[in-house]
Structure formats: structure tokens, C-alpha cells
Amino acid sequence: MDASAKPYTLYGAPGSGATPVHAALTLIGAPVDTVDIAPWKSEAERDKLLPVNPMRQAPVLVLPSGEVMTESAAILVWLGDCHPEACLAPGVDHPLRAQYLRWMAYVSAAIYSMYWLRDVPSRLAADAKAEAVVLARTAERISECWRLMDAGVPQGSPYLLGDRVSVLDLYVTVVSRWTPRRMRFYRDAPRLADMVRRVDAEPRLGDFWAARFPFTPGWEGTESAT
């Protein structure tokens, strides 16, 4: 990567949906400036994203050209395609391309989408009692989706698309750390669990994880987390 290349600008707090994008940029070796905004915390935080995303959601990636991208799966797919030298995604003619796109969309639509409601349950729940139901039921839905993915991905490779870390692996690794968190994920998706542990231990990401999504005591949670 050219050291003089204009940097990307990435909006989103550590541990958020910006994290797999930042991890991918780290593996690519691309320069990136970060703007830490946590839109789940408050209306004021969400409003900080208005200049770059009218949805007030993160991640947002501003490309070196100045073009704005949103939607985590789209950003990751784009990065994989635009930086083939990093070998983070199968090419358009690769036999695994269809399944790669399938699971990228699945994680985004079936699992990641649940957190729009989980982060602020009052968006659809009328009171505290209803919010508790929403949190419990979305936790069950997330676990079910991980189980279905675990049963559907190919066996026999260290990563989801073969012998190399891909943006799909990065995506699953980060999202699997969100509530109901890893202990329950390990139980529900034992094959995926082996993969995410490898990504956790990826030497090229050691400093990145420590800085942007550290493995602090208790980070894996409990099996009953909601």
C-alpha cells in the first residue's frame, strides 16, 4: 500500500459495526482516520452522523475519492473487491462467490438488523415490560440465526471460505461478540466458534483488537445472556 495514499475516513465507535470494516482496512494496510461515534447511546450521538448519513447510523466509510458508503456488508464486499491483493474475498468468478455473498447478506439482514431494535427497544416497545420482551425475543432470534448459519456453512476449512481470513470471517467475529455474546454463541454455533477463535488470535490483528475491541475480563458473557 502506498504510504502517501489518501486515507479512508471511518465513522463508528470501537466495538460497533465499524469494527469489521476497520479490521479489514488493517489487513489491507490502508490508511484510515477514525471518527468515534456511538449512535446507540443518545440522540445527540446519532445527530453527529447527519452530515454523512441521513439515517444517523454507523458505520460510514468516506472513500479517498470523497464518496460516502454506508451499510456494513456493502462496505466489506466493496473493500474485498477493490483490494484483491489482500485476498479477503473470493473474486466474481470464484466457486465460493455465491455463498460468500449469501452469508454476507444473511449476517447483515438476519442478525445485525436486530440491533437497531435492541439498542433502543423503545423504538417499537411501549413500556419497560414490553422492552424486556423485545430484548428476550430478539436474543432468541439471534441465537436461532447463528444456529442456522452454523448448520449451513461448509465444513473442513479453518475459515468460512477456505484457508484464508475473509471479510466474512471478520464480520461474524465482531457481530458474534454482541449480545447475547460469545458464550451463548459458542453453544449455538460450535463450528463457527472455532473460526472466530482463530480470528481473535490472528497475529496481524493483535494490536488492532487491543486498541479497538479489547478482550477485557468477562467479554465472552454467559450462556443465558439476553
Rank of each mutant, 00 (worst) to 15 (best):
M1I: 11
S4D: 14
K6N: 09
T9N: 03
L10R: 00
L10A: 04
Y11L: 01
G12W: 03
A13R: 11
A13H: 11
P14R: 06
S16I: 03
P20W: 08
P20T: 06
A24I: 02
T26H: 05
L27V: 02
G29V: 05
G29M: 05
A30E: 11
P31H: 07
D33G: 11
T34M: 07
T34Y: 11
A44D: 13
D47A: 15
K48M: 10
L49R: 03
P51E: 04
N53T: 01
Q57W: 00
A58F: 07
A58G: 07
V60D: 01
V60W: 02
L61T: 03
L63P: 03
E67K: 14
E71S: 09
A73N: 09
A74P: 03
L76Y: 04
C82E: 15
P84L: 03
C87R: 14
D93Q: 13
H94D: 15
P95K: 09
P95Y: 02
L96F: 07
Q99H: 14
Y100R: 04
W103V: 00
M104L: 07
S108Q: 14
A109T: 12
A110Q: 14
M114H: 12
Y115P: 05
W116Y: 12
L117P: 00
L117S: 12
D119R: 14
D119I: 00
P121K: 05
P121Y: 04
S122D: 11
R123Y: 08
A125C: 09
D127V: 06
K129H: 12
A132W: 04
A132L: 09
V134K: 04
A136S: 14
T138W: 00
A139T: 03
E140I: 00
R141I: 06
R141Y: 10
S143T: 15
S143F: 01
R147Q: 14
R147C: 11
A151T: 04
G152K: 02
V153L: 09
Q155H: 13
P158D: 08
Y159A: 09
Y159E: 09
L160F: 08
L160V: 02
G162W: 02
G162H: 06
V165A: 08
S166N: 11
L168R: 05
D169W: 06
D169F: 08
L170P: 08
V172E: 04
V175Q: 06
R177S: 13
R177L: 03
T179Q: 11
P180L: 03
P180G: 06
R181F: 02
R181W: 03
R182C: 12
Y186S: 11
P190R: 08
R191A: 12
L192H: 06
V196W: 05
V196S: 06
V196L: 06
R197T: 13
L205T: 00
D207K: 13
W209C: 03
W209Y: 10
R212Q: 12
F215Y: 10
G218N: 07
W219I: 01
G221M: 05
T222V: 11
S224A: 15
A225W: 08
T226E: 14
